[in-house]
Nucleic acid binder design. Structure first.
Length: 821
DNA sequence: TCCTCCCGCCAAGCA
DNA sequence: TGCTTGGCGGGAGGA
């Protein structure tokens, strides 16, 4: 049992006394002569002053050096107080800087090697540390808590911790990044920034309710400590103060950096997010101040670890303190190489060499065996969201037909590991895929230009545009997010250039592009990519600044499984990868955007087996995906997808984050919906199945602010003129979480109507039509080129497509300057 | 004046 | 019951 010494030369950076050696169970002997020039040690300062003050004290100090008794330090202090006047004594005290937590942390870290040999456990005795560093125990707790959040130490017992060093750091950062993405911190940051911006123009409008709804209720926002396997969490007060602990705050703080682009986080934003997750109703100043204090504590330790660096962000509102991530770049699924690279002398334990997927899943899902992992709050959010969605939809008079309970009985509600999803999917698709392909064939045959190519390498289902879809729609790929609990799935469509920025991974969902959805097509030049398959979700989260490694990751061996169901699975997995290619391009373009607004999408509830061939469906009820496929297959969506030049790509947005966009749209344009004319549509529209779309339609329209809460629209606005209230024309719903590329003109396209309860929603970037005008309106959100009182330019079906309504959003250009101290 | 954050009270919870 | 742990906020140093 000893306190290990730091091996590396990093301690040269630390202006502190070093312990030359350590002995078992004893305090290392102090150097005979403390360097008098060391101004960083309060005690040395004190000693110097003592010597200067009195020969008597000097001799006592000499004796004290032999005994090294802390009680004598106090005594000496007392004597010093007696000898010196009050002011002098105050001056003799070390300055605040010399007592700072950051400096203390430097001293603390200097005691231990960055990469201790895993076979040789290093223990930290708090008593020992407090004594040697001459610091209050309380301060050590602050340091240890932050280090614990990074799994650099872990609590072993009372007064005793284990030092892990930086061995776990890559894994921890990866896990934190994933959880941060899970928690949608990007969106929260965007929302806070947007609100700040809006507040400048409308200071009286607090809109805390909106904020609250965006963050979710406080009860569901509680967040657990993200653990790593092998690093057990044994906090002293596990139950009571766990969720407010410095550990959790520290992890969240780090997450903010890891998910942000650029990796600069202001204290204000961080505090707001932390408060927002704690208690939204108490957005008072004192809480804010307290959070800021704690963040300074954390930041000091992180700075000592050289993970962050203090900077200042200058905005319109002034100079704000912020921190910039200077730690290692966190790449998904590369921790193995990193560990190898960082442990040339001491290899990490095998148990540490797990995949990031496992880490993430273990952190997010409770382990059945060893209850070492805490259920993550995102799971709670997910369940709540599902329940809310189900309540909203099913409580309506025309609720979607609920799929039979047996459909999902075979599906575990929340599998323990993400890796199980493909297997589950495969299992579910088994026996369904054949019929699905038949249906796909049928539909394709009904279209003039689609020719099914069952060759697996061609990814037939995805590469065949439905006849009613223009060939240029080839990349339109809806993602279906099934909700096993609610029986309602979601589809989302986004443009790839925006989609990549919101690739928050949700392990609770299986991402499944519609295998039979002929709205989806893949360009031939992407077929190569499509043939590649990855089951590692991290691929979809690769940052824009990691293209080389992303490419390397894509060269993983292909899984050789050629059943049709597996091909479906492949497609679902290949699609996010496909989007990567374009992501990178757009990423490069947007890298110079200082503050990035991220796009979001709308999640579209999909009903099951509510239309089309009932008999067909009944045979597929065993698998929830079946109905999804069918829905997509026969849905008039396929007939109304316009997107002439766009390349919508799927994005895996967790369904519990429904982010309506701030849009001003004319209801008239919605009323001017196109008449669908294709065989699939016709067959669908004449279906005898109940039509549950009304509630869902209203649900969505209300969500996106096209109609007020009380207004209802008919079930099928395609075939009926939609009597939307005139009020809705001026509705400008602001969710506060509009995620878009800043400074770019975003063309928002809605597609109405959609069969049953399906909706499509997309974001398409477009070149500013009038750059000088768009520049002029960048000071306000969603202001139209014609001025604040004019409606957005709307063009329904003007381009020959079946686009029904369209608006233009102007995202403000905000200038940010970052200065380092 | 505001930023920064030390300091220590005191409560929760453990041994 | 004493001790450990750590949330919390007052208030002071520093820029």
């Amino acid at each position: 049992l000893k306190t290990p010494l730091k091996q590396a030369a990093t301690s040269q950076l630390v202006l502190t006394e070093r312990q030359p050696d350590c002995q078992p169970l004893t305090t290392p002997p102090k150097p005979k002569e403390t360097p008098p020039a060391d101004p960083w040690t309060p005690t040395s300062n004190l000693k110097m002053l003592i010597s200067a003050a009195s020969p008597e004290i000097r001799s006592r100090e000499q004796r004290r050096q032999l005994s090294d008794s802390s009680s004598e330090v106090l005594q000496t202090k007392h004597c010093l107080q007696e000898h010196l006047l009050g002011d002098e004594y105050e001056k003799s005290q070390p300055s605040r800087k010399e007592k700072s937590l950051g400096l203390l942390c430097h001293k603390f870290l200097a005691r231990y090697p960055d990469y201790p040999c895993p076979s040789q456990k290093s223990y930290i005795c708090l008593d020992e540390v407090t004594e040697e560093l001459h610091v209050e125990r309380r301060r050590i707790y602050d340091i240890v808590n932050v280090l614990e959040s990074l799994h650099m130490v872990s609590r072993l017992a009372r007064n005793r911790y284990v030092w892990h060093g930086r061995h776990n750091l890559p894994q921890t950062l990866q896990a934190l990044k994933k959880v941060g993405e899970e928690n949608k911190y990007i969106q929260q940051i965007q929302m806070i920034k947007k609100r700040e911006y809006e507040h400048e123009f409308d200071p009286d409008n607090e809109r805390n309710e909106e904020m609250a709804s965006s963050f979710g209720s406080s009860e569901q926002s509680e967040m657990s400590f993200v653990e790593l396997p092998g690093v057990e969490f044994r906090a002293a007060s596990v139950n009571g103060r766990k969720y407010k602990s410095l550990r959790v705050m520290s992890q969240k703080f780090v997450m903010l950096f890891l998910v942000s682009t650029p990796q600069i986080v202001s204290l204000e934003v961080a505090a707001k997010i932390l408060i927002g997750e704690d208690q939204l109703e108490d957005l008072d100043k004192s809480k804010f101040k307290t959070k800021i204090r704690r963040l300074y504590d954390i930041a000091n330790v992180l700075s000592s670890l050289k993970l962050i660096k203090k900077v200042h962000v200058t905005e319109e509102r002034g100079r704000k303190p912020a921190f910039k991530w200077t730690g290692p770049e966190v790449l998904p699924n590369t921790q193995d190489t990193k560990l190898e690279a960082t442990s040339t002398t001491c290899s990490p334990p095998i148990s540490e060499s797990i995949t990031s997927k496992e880490q993430c899943s273990k952190a997010l899902f409770p382990s059945k065996g060893k209850q070492n992992f805490t259920r993550h709050s995102s799971l709670i959010k997910l369940v709540k969201s599902i329940e809310n969605d189900r309540r909203k939809i099913q409580s309506a008079p025309t609720s979607p037909v609920k799929i039979s309970a047996s459909t999902y009985q075979s599906l575990p509600v929340f599998p323990n590991t993400i890796a199980q999803f493909p297997a589950i999917t495969k299992h579910q698709l088994e026996g369904q895929s054949k019929t699905a392909e038949e249906r796909q064939m049928k539909c394709a045959l009904s279209s003039p230009e689609a020719v099914p190519k069952p060759e697996p390498s061609q990814q037939p289902a995805l590469s065949q545009p439905l006849g009613v879809c223009p060939a240029s729609h080839s990349s339109v790929s809806p993602v279906i997010l099934p909700h096993p609990q609610s029986g309602v799935s979601y589809a989302i469509y986004l443009h790839p250039s925006q989609a990549h920025t919101v690739t928050t991974y949700s392990p609770g969902f299986m991402l499944q592009p519609l295998p039979c959805a002929n709205v989806t097509g893949i360009k031939s030049n992407n077929s190569k990519v499509l043939n590649k398959i990855t089951t590692e979700e991290g691929d979809s989260q690769r940052g824009p600044d990691e293209p080389a490694k992303s490419l390397a990751a894509e060269e993983r061996p292909e899984i050789k499984s050629e059943t049709s169901s597996q091909r479906c699975l492949k497609r679902s997995q290949a699609l996010p990868e496909n989007s990567l290619i374009k992501r990178r391009k757009s990423d490069e373009e947007s890298l110079d955007t200082y503050l990035t607004f991220f796009p979001s999408g709308y999640l579209i509830p999909l009903t099951h087996c509510t239309h089309g061939n009932k008999a067909e469906c009944s045979t597929k009820e065993k698998a929830g995906v079946c109905s999804l496929q069918h829905t997509a297959y026969s849905s008039p969506i396929t007939g109304v997808i316009p997107m002439p030049a766009s390349e919508l790509k799927p994005v895996n947005i967790p369904a519990f984050h429904i982010t309506p966009l701030n849009i001003m749209l004319s209801a008239n344009s919605i009323a001017a919906a196109p008449v669908l004319s294709n065989s699939c549509l016709n067959s669908s529209s004449t279906s005898s199945a109940p039509n549950p779309s009304s509630s869902a339609l209203n649900f969505m329209l209300q969500h996106i602010g096209l109609i007020p809460a009380g207004v209802q629209v008919p079930a099928n606005p395609v075939l009926q003129h939609m009597p939307v209230s005139s009020q809705s024309e001026s509705i400008s719903y602001s969710s506060g979480s509009t995620n878009m590329q800043e400074g770019k003109v975003i063309e928002v396209t809605f597609y109405f109507p959609i069969n049953e309860s399906n909706f499509l929603f997309s974001l398409q970037p477009s070149a500013p039509k009038e750059p000088q005008e768009s520049q002029a309106v960048t000071e306000n959100f969603f202001r139209t080129p014609g001025g604040p009182n004019t409606e957005p330019s709307l063009s329904a079906n003007s381009d020959g497509t079946q686009r029904t309504s369209q608006g233009t959003l102007y995202i403000p250009q905000r200038k940010l300057e970052v200065s380092e101290d």
